[in-house]
Design a protein around this nucleic acid. Structure first.
Length: 879
RNA sequence: GGGCUCAUAGCUCAGUUGGUUAGAGCGUUGCGUUGACAUCGCAAAGGUCAGAGGUUCAAGUCCUCUUGGGCCCACCA
């Protein structure tokens, strides 16, 4: 065939070329076809601001493996791609670039700013898509979606209106998580709790009736005291019982506040008296509602103190904290300060400490939506892999709280709610209404807020098919097969998609959820820019190739386990690619083109294959069976490593080395070609580029390996007996090689004769059938096989289980060393014998263990005993 | 406070219904290059499977506890 194949595999020569070919040949395209079964995956849409990191690389490699595997298995596969508008993140990026020229978004105004974001998106938003293509992902790019597309936005509006009309969306004033930097509300999930070292401050509030007496309260956020409207104690607490109903004088602001009693107060924490700030703490909010307290908000949206904060007005909340403590101290009202570990919510976008903040927001009632989503997982309609995540999911679902969906930013889906400026009527409508249905005025204004980004992403599995239109595609491809994602977005996204699917499509969005691990650095730290421990996938692709990246990543990803990465890890993938390359190169250089047209089955009807070929074919199909089983169970590392071990250590190290000496033999020609062909197909989902490149060099039936079928398991060809016989021959070869080493006999000297002594005629015949291979690889010029062991002077004898193996004793041998080796082996075997004897002496074992296990053990004991005897004989013969 | 997860060779990790002699990659040591591959080959060394108890004929694998990492959830002011 071709004789101009490079000695080393160079990914750069192949990757972009084949990707372009696949795309231009429309091989990723999917159309509904009633004759075929669909297999759909929707991509977790990366943020438009995203740049490819290892998490993406892992996530998308797994999806691509599934898609390519199922495509080759004959499914009508669709991998739906797209990007997410990522409201806060994208707005932040554009605001930053504005800040560089000294502008704020308010300077532009809403419409101009949004235009700016769109043009930013046009320019940079497809970066991540280009990068995904470098990974080899076989998405149907003709369907690329964006969560802010017109059609998609319609779906978002529709979902809002439907939920509102069902009474599942409401507006109200509640304590929400507020990010003072982004100046927007966040959902509970977007406020990530991290513990931090803070203080517990003990403040003294004087009693009104006797300013020399105090109630001491403990707080971690002293600045909120400006908004205190009560102090609460537990009515059962003897210390404070009598004070309930009395008044305190709130320091610094000189406001009168009451002491109230409530069972919620923990008598053991702090002093047992708690300051109540209903506008700045969720607990206090509840108390405020219950006891009809005043709600005094002392903060502005940007985290500075407002006009109600008196002297502290305009100070940042943390500056105000210091000032207030200073003043209290001066007045002798700071009792003490204790170090205290606390946990505070942090904005998941900018990591600023969020403020519990009272404001008017839109919410989704979650309990009614959660019900079906809980059942779906409990009844196994949706399955998590690994299973344990279903517990995490259920625990969250069962304690679900309402979802704050309004954001005070500009980039996003504007809430489809309009207010009449005349009569104050609220109108909820997907499209802007002409006039107020109540007073007919056309003076309407739209709600200023936009929706949480996740309020659009939760519709992803069906909104990408233009829901609410009942498209053919939606009917055909929904529900999808598998969702592949990371654990941190189970709540954000997975759970909500299940709820949305059941609510709007009346069906689950996907059957399986595969949760992979987090990619970490070698010290177990999460990879992040700020830590500077990032391994850039594009750099790895550049240096080692995409297939190397994909293979290495997959081979170390045990199901759902975190991945610890160092750069060297990718050498394994590169080396493997090179190994595949060179083995293929060898085969191509030696392949007789007439042979490859022969059909294996036809050939097998006429002839029985030689042993070595029966062996490798059996090994291949055993490997394939294992691989498919692993893939079907989402055990990607096992699948990859099974193929790796077969190809490298069985096919290359043994098989090719054996047939090398007789490569033109028809059997060898046929089998090496068939196995390479089938191996490439089995490997293709993992390493798409190199497999295509080699496939194209083989004479092929189809234009792309992508269009070929995944190999089918040929159960009839799996022959465990042959596998066993052959592996024994391989062990004999290793033993003889070791003996040569011990005697320092050079491999090149092809003048060594060996003898094998066995114990039965049957075994002799079996060994004779593989004697050619043994001679070949042990570099022997003569091999004699006998039934009974006869000691011969001047021979170097070793024992392999029930066999004696001997070669002429040339030169000097270190008898003492060899004796020691034998002794150690004898010791080991004897201890095994002892263990087996103990086991077999137990009645319980004989009675309760399955018969085949018992028989197996008896057989083993017999063999061990005979082995130890032989070993002893050889040892005695040494002197 | 609740939950999850990890501890197996020098290092990073596999080991899924309990049943041969616990595996891989890297690293280490020795040998090897006149045509598949040094991104290679042949071989070797290296493990009380964190500790204690239990279930079982049989435990790296199941149960309980202990120790030490990591993670998630939670309105402890």
């Amino acid at each position: 065939m071709t004789d101009e194949i490079a000695k080393q595999y160079n990914p750069k020569d192949t990757e972009d070329k084949w990707y372009k070919f696949w795309e231009e040949s429309n091989l990723f395209l999917a159309k509904p076809d009633p004759k075929k079964k669909p297999y759909t995956i929707v991509i977790p849409p990366p943020n438009v601001t995203g740049i490819l990191h290892m998490g993406h690389a892992l996530n998308n490699t797994i999806q691509d493996i599934l898609i390519r595997y199922q495509r080759m298995q004959g499914f009508n596969t669709l991998w739906m791609p797209g990007t997410d508008h990522a409201g806060i993140a994208t707005q932040n990026v554009v605001e930053k670039s504005l800040a560089k020229v000294g502008l704020k978004r308010q300077d532009l105004g809403r419409d101009k700013f949004i235009q700016r974001v769109w043009s930013w998106k046009e320019e940079y938003g497809s970066t991540i898509i280009r990068q995904l293509k470098k990974l080899g992902t076989s998405c149907d790019w003709s369907r690329l979606r964006f969560t802010m597309d017109e059609e998609y936005s319609k779906a978002v509006m529709e979902a809002f209106v439907r939920l509102y009309n069902k009474g599942l969306i409401y507006r109200g004033s509640y304590i929400i998580n507020w990010c003072p930097r982004c100046q927007t509300a966040l959902s509970d999930e977007e406020a990530a709790h991290h513990s931090l070292q803070g203080n517990l401050y003990y403040l003294k509030y004087p009693l009104k009736e006797n300013p020399n007496k105090f109630v001491i309260v403990a707080t971690t956020r002293p600045e909120t005291m400006l908004g205190d409207t009560a102090v609460a104690v537990n009515p059962k607490d003897k210390r404070y019982k009598l004070l309930i109903g009395k008044k305190l004088n709130l320091p610094l602001v000189n406001r009168e506040i009451a002491i109230i009693g409530d069972n919620m107060v923990d008598t053991k924490f702090g002093t047992g008296a708690v300051k109540v700030t209903p506008a700045h703490d969720p607990n206090d909010y509840a108390l405020g509602k219950k006891h009809n307290l005043e709600f005094i908000n002392v903060l502005r949206a940007d985290g500075s103190m407002n006009e109600l904060a008196g002297d502290y007005q305009n100070m940042d909340r943390f500056k105000a904290r210091e000032a207030i403590l200073e003043d209290l101290k001066k007045q002798g009202l700071l009792e003490k300060v204790e170090a205290h570990e606390l946990s505070a919510g942090h904005c998941y976008r900018c990591h600023t400490i969020v403020e519990p903040y009272l404001s008017k927001q839109w919410f989704v009632k979650m309990k009614p939506l959660a019900k079906g989503a809980i059942d779906a997982v409990k009844k196994g309609k949706v399955n998590f892999y690994p299973k344990r995540w279903s517990k995490v999911y259920l625990n969250w679902m069962e304690n679900i709280r309402d979802w704050c969906i309004s954001r005070q930013i500009w980039w996003g889906h504007r809430i489809p709610v309009y207010y009449c400026n005349k009569c104050n009527e609220t109108i909820v409508s997907a499209a802007k209404p002409q006039n107020c249905p109540k007073c007919k005025s056309n003076d309407l204004r739209q709600d200023e807020d936009v929706l949480d980004t996740w309020f659009s992403s939760w519709l992803w599995p069906f909104a990408t098919f233009y829901w609410p239109n009942e498209s053919k595609d939606l009917k055909y491809f929904y529900p999808t097969a598998t969702l592949v994602t990371a654990p941190e977005i189970i709540f954000f996204w997975v759970a909500r998609m299940i709820m949305a699917g059941l609510e709007f499509q009346k069906d689950i969005p996907f059957k399986d959820v595969y949760i992979h691990g987090t990619v970490r650095d070698i010290e177990g730290k999460k990879m992040s820019k700020s830590l500077g421990n990032i391994i850039d996938p594009l750099e790895i692709i550049n240096e080692y190739g995409t297939d190397a990246l994909r293979f290495s990543l997959i081979s170390i990803t045990a199901q759902g386990q975190d991945v610890f990465l160092s750069k060297e890890r990718f050498e394994q993938g590169r080396n493997f690619a090179n190994k595949i390359w060179n083995a293929s190169r060898f085969i191509l250089m030696n392949l007789d083109s007439t042979m490859i047209k022969t059909d294996l089955c036809q050939f097998l009807k006429k002839e029985e294959l030689t042993l070595v070929n029966r062996w490798i074919l059996s090994r291949f199909y055993s490997t394939l069976k294992e691989t498919k089983k692993n893939l079907d169970n989402y055990q990607f590392n096992e699948a990859a490593n099974t193929l790796y071990a077969f190809f490298w250590h069985e096919f290359c190290d043994w098989y090719l080395e054996i047939i090398k000496h007789d490569i033109k033999n028809a059997h060898n020609q046929l089998v090496m070609y068939k196995i390479l062909d089938k191996f490439l197909r089995a490997m293709h989902p993992f390493m798409p580029f190199i497999t295509e490149e080699i496939w194209q060099k083989l004479a092929t039936q189809t234009s792309s390996i992508m269009l070929s079928s995944y190999p089918h398991i040929q159960e009839k060809i799996i022959d465990k007996k042959t596998e066993k016989t052959f592996s024994e021959a391989l062990e004999i070869i290793t033993t003889i090689r070791n003996m040569r080493m011990e005697l320092d006999i050079p491999v090149q000297a092809n003048n060594l004769g060996a003898k094998i002594f066995t114990t039965s005629k049957a075994k002799k015949a079996m060994l004779e059938s593989v004697s050619g291979q043994i001679m070949n690889l042990a570099r022997l010029n003569k091999l004699e096989i006998f039934v009974d062991f006869k000691e011969t002077k001047g021979e170097f004898v070793n024992v392999l289980r029930d066999l004696h193996i001997s070669i002429p004793l040339t030169g000097v041998i270190d008898i003492a060393k060899h004796e020691e080796k034998l002794s150690m082996k004898i010791q080991k075997v004897e201890s095994e014998i002892k263990a087996k004897e103990g086991m077999l002496a137990k009645k319980d074992f004989l009675q309760r263990a399955p018969r085949d296990i018992v028989e197996n053990e008896i057989e083993k004991l017999k063999n061990l005993k005979s082995e130890v005897q032989k070993l002893k004989g050889v040892k005695d013969g040494l002197r």
